[in-house]
């Protein structure tokens, strides 16, 4: 068992727990977005930040400086001093929620969450807002629960998005709908695309690029329907 202090209260939790689990177990509310109890913690949305201070070393009573850390990924350590709702925590959550809205200001779910954290206005909006907050829940559910990894988070930075490989219908997708159910903003859709039922982001079909040279859909590989044929050809080519 591990002892730590949350909002001035001494609590005891089992070894191996995260701060978020400790907080919830002992009734300290902490907002989350990218966390799901059935999935490995991710630490992407940063709404669950709390103030964490290391215990002072023996013989030194001065408190250590506190830093903000995501509760969902921080492992409980003996003697930690945690604040779940300090001024700094609130300020950070408020601005983070406002930033989340920048790309999802049409989502009622996100507005409700942001309002509960004190957001009143959105000062910055992304022109290409598509309501996806890149929390990665769908991708992790597909990988960890369904076990097929039909979709992933592709590209990086601002361009990061949820997509099946090659941004076309995925051959691996079972059409189980787990991703659609877990999505906090309702942006994912499940549709019959070119013969497959496949998960994809709403509006993705229109957004696909056409190749400047051949005016065919860019990156659309022909082998997706029959990967076996490609592999056979490859093996033959190398003589393996």
């Amino acid at each position: 068992m591990i002892q730590l202090t949350i909002d001035d209260r001494r609590v005891t939790v089992a070894e191996g727990r995260t701060l978020l689990e400790a907080c919830r177990e002992h009734g300290f509310p902490v907002p989350t977005l990218c966390y799901h109890p059935a999935l490995k913690p991710y630490g992407g949305c940063r709404l669950c930040v709390v103030e964490v201070a290391q215990p002072p070393p023996p013989g030194d009573a001065r408190p250590r400086p506190a830093r903000l850390a995501a509760a969902c990924t921080y492992p409980c350590e003996p003697g930690l001093v945690v604040r779940t709702n300090s001024e700094a925590v609130q300020r950070s959550r408020r601005l983070t929620a406002e930033l989340l809205l920048a790309g999802a200001y049409q989502s009622p779910e996100m507005w409700a969450l942001a309002k509960s954290l004190g957001v009143e206005q959105v000062r910055f909006q992304l022109p290409e807002a598509d309501n996806c907050v890149v929390c990665g829940l769908c991708v992790r559910a597909c990988q960890e629960i369904v076990g097929v990894s039909a979709i992933s988070l592709i590209k990086r930075g601002m361009a990061k998005q949820v997509s099946p490989p090659f941004e076309i219908a995925s051959a691996a997708c079972l059409g189980c709908g787990t991703c659609v159910l877990i999505c906090p903003t309702g942006v994912l859709r499940l549709e019959d695309v070119s013969g497959y039922r496949s998960a994809h982001a709403a509006g993705a079909a229109e957004a696909r690029e056409y190749c400047q040279t051949c005016s065919e859909l860019d990156l659309e590989p022909h082998f997706v329907a029959a990967p076996e044929a490609l592999l056979a050809a490859a093996r033959e080519g190398t003589g393996l």
Partner: peptide
């Protein structure tokens, strides 16, 4: 940094974009 952000966490992915736009 905005172009090099990995895009995993919100403050860096969107926040640096908001700073850059400003």
């Amino acid at each position: 940094t905005q172009e090099e952000s990995c895009g995993k966490c919100v403050p860096c992915r969107v926040g640096t974009k908001a700073m850059l736009a400003t």
